[in-house]
Structures are given as C-alpha cells and as structure tokens.
C-alpha cells in the first residue's frame, strides 16, 4: 500500500485529524498545533504526487509551504501572546465578540 493511494489516504487522515482538533478544541495553542498537522497532510499529498509523477514541482511547492508554516508560526504565536496579554486566557471563547 506504499503507493500513491496510501500516501494520499494518510494525508487525508492527517488533514482530518487536524481539522477535528482545529474545530473542537478551544485553546489557541492547540488550534495552532492542529493547523500545523493539517499542513503536514497537505505537504504529504504534494510530495507524494511529485514522487509518483516524477517531477520536482511538488517538492518545490512543499518547500514554500514550509516557509509559509514558519511565518505562520512566528506571527501566530506573536498574536497568541498578544491576545493572552489582553484577556489573560488562551481560550478562544474570550474572543467571541470578534465573530461577524
């Protein structure tokens, strides 16, 4: 099963797990970790397609996604620290007023 289907399925599972955590947990940091897990699923898809189609676009895009993830980690954590300083809790419920 270590073929393209296996890698795509694993990517989908990682994405699904990350999505569940993203939607169900309330701690900012855990939501953030779940987003990282979703990104891993997506990158796994890209690299798998690149491997089994024998071109390098998948790996190049995956590298850019890693850069984006690093940027997201830096800015997201800065925002998390800022929000925590304002409200004193990492709970997203404290920011319900932000919904449209």
């Amino acid at each position: 099963m270590a073929n393209l289907h296996g890698y795509l399925l694993l990517g989908a599972m990682l994405f699904g797990l990350g999505l569940v955590g993203f939607l169900a947990r309330r701690n900012l940091i855990v939501i953030f970790l779940s987003a990282e897990l979703m990104l891993q699923g997506v990158v796994l898809n890209l690299v798998g397609f690149g491997r089994f189609h024998r071109d390098l676009d998948g790996q190049a895009f995956a590298g850019f996604i890693l850069v984006i993830a690093a940027v997201e980690a830096g800015l997201g954590l800065a925002l998390a620290v800022l929000l925590l300083r304002r409200k004193g809790t990492p709970d997203v419920e404290a920011w319900r007023a932000l919904r449209g």
């Binding site: 939607l23 947990r25 309330r26 419920e93």
Partner: peptide, 13 residues
Amino acid sequence: MLTSRPGSDRQLV
C-alpha cells in the same frame, strides 16, 4: 511556556 496558565478552562467548544 509564555501562554500556559495553571487551572485550565474548558477544553472543548
């Protein structure tokens, strides 16, 4: 480390 607080709140939505 910067954001953790003792006595956690509810964990799920």
